[in-house]
Amino acid sequence: MQYISAERYGNSYRNAEKKRYRDRSRAELVETVAETVFTFCAFCSVLAVASITLYMVVNGTPAVFRVGLKDILFSSTWKPVAKEPSFGIFYVVLSSIAGTAMAVILGVPVALLTAVFLAEVAPKKLAATVGAAVELLAGIPSVIYGMIGMMVLNPVMYRLEQRIFARTPGHQFTGGANLLSAALVLAVMIMPTVISISETAIRAVPAHLRASSYALGASRVQTIFRVVLPAAKPGIATAVVLGVGRALGEAMAVSLVSGGSVNVPLPFRSVRFLTTALVSEMGYAGGLHRQVLFTVGLVLFVFIMLINLSLNRILKERERQDD
């Protein structure tokens, strides 16, 4: 067909060919540009992580040299604005670790049981309703959690404190703003994350494992706790690690409920975390104080990176097991 028209309309055919050639080279150019742009977009996240790391290190290390590593990390006196300031963040680090640990201990069991409910126990409709509630909990801003904690939880804690320490002279009353309040708020805040990821993991456990367990005469509860949850372990580990990350990194909610003085992390002491030190002091800090705050940020960053690496390890392990 084509060569006939080429003979008959030789000229216009040649023109069309030319045009097609031009179009093709233009199309090729567009293709190249598109690919380049997409590649750039893709590597933006790499760029972001690299520059965040760089900035955290560059801004966080000067204070270490000026104050000394030992005097920052392992000294417990935090007096950044005193005449002879000291910048020991030992208690701050400890508080962050203690608060996170307590939040995980309090929050993960409830979250896991809820995940079991959603994936194994509840009838479909009920599961959908509870699942929707969990999703909504995940979307509530952390300031609101902080506000509820401050208005509802702190007064309860204060009453508890008054009862427990009524005969303990020298106890510094916190008005309920203490480590325990912060841990409770954090526990609630990590629940949605832990629930939804564990639920997915539990649902992914193959049905034949359950069948085998039932065939051996196991009850539903036995099957859940002895077969299903162990089989979902990698996924649940992922959920817990993500929960740890969330708890460690949460700033606003805990800054409202934790009191804010630098203290040994005990349940009824007012405490300051790595994150709350940053949000409450960054606004007015200057000079060396500000540099030390960046070191605080660096410490938090290192913790989070360690968590990310362990998460990556778990995920890789999981991939290997799937093969």
Partner: peptide, 24 residues
């Protein structure tokens, strides 16, 4: 007792697999 089409040991040790039933 029942044995299934797909060989489906639980993701645990050989010992724990066999001991599962008695433990239950």
């Amino acid at each position: 007792g029942m044995v299934f089409q797909e060989p489906n040991p639980f993701p645990m040790s050989i010992y724990d697999n066999v001991a599962y039933g008695p433990r239950v």
